[in-house]
């Protein structure tokens, strides 16, 4: 931990840090291809990356801040202290988990009384958190630390057209840098990023808690319709929360209405992995998908031959 205060003071763009990868609930259970792509690709790009062990649910800030903020701050700290004790910053891919952990860490860094309160509860499990680490989004690590110019220069272009789904929580910062990073990184990897009507629309995940029908039909399906109209090869995202919603909604729509959202929903890291030389089967890309990926995989393999 001795080098972390120095790391925190310098320009993040110039830092090469050690990271612990926070998986969250959805990625290890529903997106193993994304987890595999991240864990196999980033070390080759010079990122010192290990798993964040013993992690639980982030927990969902959207729920717990409204119900009891002690739970949000304390259970987030329980996850973060595992990285802190290993002398690592935290890398997060899911926008929802990122907001939960980033905001909790910020509150605890800026408010000693909140940190003291959290440590009082963590003591029940014999744990302690100093809030002395950074929480970084996968997009920040790729764009700033690996470097967008390097990726543009090195990455083999994949000859597909895609739509992107940034997701609400990617807009956490006023300057919008995460959305810009996501767009530019995707553009660096594929032939074309195709805009569509509902690109900014919420996936509908949080609406499920109040009205599942609204979440499915007035959010996910409207988005699906808009993406399908563009005839793209894939819908690209990084947020596991949004993926969870798209997976659930596409299944429901197929079972209830025979509606087929046949555009594969993929993770940016899969494109990065393929572009840097991994084969689709190296990351288990064929399994647990919302839509068949055979045609997409053919195009990916042809692109990088």
């Amino acid at each position: 931990m001795t080098d972390l205060p120095i790391v925190n003071k310098v320009n993040p763009a110039a830092v090469r840090s050690k990271y612990a990868h926070f998986l969250g609930c959805v990625m290890p259970a529903k997106m193993p291809w994304a987890e595999s792509a991240i864990m196999k690709t980033l070390p080759g790009l010079g990122i010192d990356l290990e798993y964040l062990p013993k992690s639980g649910c982030c927990p969902r800030a959207g729920v717990w801040i409204s119900v009891d903020r002690r739970v949000w701050l304390t259970l987030a700290s329980y996850n973060l202290l595992q990285a802190e004790s290993a002398g690592r910053d935290v890398l997060v891919s899911c926008n929802g988990c990122y907001v939960t952990l980033y905001e909790a860490n910020k509150v605890l860094k800026e408010n000693p009384e909140d940190l003291a309160m959290v440590n009082q509860y963590l003591a029940a499990a014999g744990k302690h958190y100093e809030a002395d680490i950074r929480i970084r989004h996968l997009l920040e690590v790729l764009y700033e630390e690996v470097g967008i110019e390097r990726i543009r220069r090195e990455a083999k272009k994949i000859h597909i057209r895609v739509a992107i789904h940034p997701g609400c929580h990617m807009r956490i910062f006023e300057d919008g840098h995460l959305v810009r990073y996501f767009t530019e990184l995707t553009e660096a990897l594929v032939d074309e990023v195709v805009p569509y009507d509902c690109e900014r629309m919420c996936c509908g995940l949080q609406c499920n808690l109040a009205d599942r029908e609204f979440a499915t039909y007035d959010r996910a399906k409207r988005k699906f319709d808009s993406v399908k109209a563009q005839n793209v090869d894939a819908l690209v995202l990084v947020c596991a929360g949004c993926y969870d919603q798209f997976e659930r909604a596409s299944k429901t729509l197929k079972e209830t209405d025979g509606y087929d959202f046949d555009v594969p929903v993929i993770h940016l890291a899969e494109l990065l992995a393929i572009s840097y030389g991994l084969r689709p089967d190296d990351i288990g890309m064929r399994y647990m998908r919302t839509a068949p990926v055979d045609t997409l995989i053919e195009k990916l393999e042809t692109s990088v031959q």
Partner: peptide, 17 residues
């Protein structure tokens, strides 16, 4: 599926610990 993705079958999260 995790094995096919080249991962440990049980993720190193609270699932394992």
């Amino acid at each position: 599926v995790r094995k096919k993705a080249g991962l440990d079958p049980i993720p190193p999260t609270a699932h394992r610990y």
